[in-house]
Amino acid sequence: MKILVCLKQVPHKDARLEASGGWIDEGGIKFEINQYDTYALEEALRIKDAGEAEVVVATIGPDRTSQALRTALGMGADRAIQIWDDSLSGADSLTIAKLLAAAAKDESFDLVLMGLMSDDANNSLTGPMLAELLGLPHTTGAMKIELSDGKAQVERELEGGSLQVVDLPLPCLITVQTGLNEVRYASLKGIMQAKKKPLDKKGISDLGLDAAAVASKVTVDKLYVPTKGEGAEILEGSAGEVAQQLVGKIKELGLL
């Protein structure tokens, strides 16, 4: 069993973000592995723990993202691929999928896993795009994955708490929801071992591609704090004072 986990490094969920042009100002911000992708990695590591599997992690990103790959290796992944070229700054999802497809196409992965979306751009595009480019069947938003007899049975999350069950033949690509499993932490021993694991850095030409082949079609012109509507009436004062004001409002609603 050979598993590819695609992951993205995103700003830490508690980072204070400021918009700058078409993106955020990344200066002085802490980064972490996209939450959704950590569940995909954990699922791959559980398959490995239950049997024989090689887990490969891949990301597209600048130097800082090798830290995310080292963390993944520390959690138990076997090797890592980092793809970057400065021309890829601001790349759209289809470009990312093309790069991942080029990196994966000769590896014959049985299973490709990644998060349903990233916590930064929230696009939810790369997974199905990569599946299409690799000629694999896919499904999105898995809450449960069971492998047996060359197929994967997946419970995918719909709206309002309902689930859809689908069977996919391997090889296939599955994007996962948060809450699929309980994600492990890298152990100290794992982190030490990770330093000796291979981290392969590749550029666009190493993948047999050129800049024109991976030119983005989608550009973000502008990122900005939304103009607030009327917004909330903000109550001011001490804890006791605002509590009294709220009690008044709740009384007006006839609920006290």
Binding site: P11, L17, A121, V218, D221, V225
Partner: peptide, 16 residues
């Protein structure tokens, strides 16, 4: 569209 879990709005253009 929204980004960063609705913290920001964004304007995008598509070619082709």
């Amino acid at each position: 569209r929204r980004m960063f879990n609705a913290k920001f709005d964004s304007q995008l253009r598509v070619t082709g």
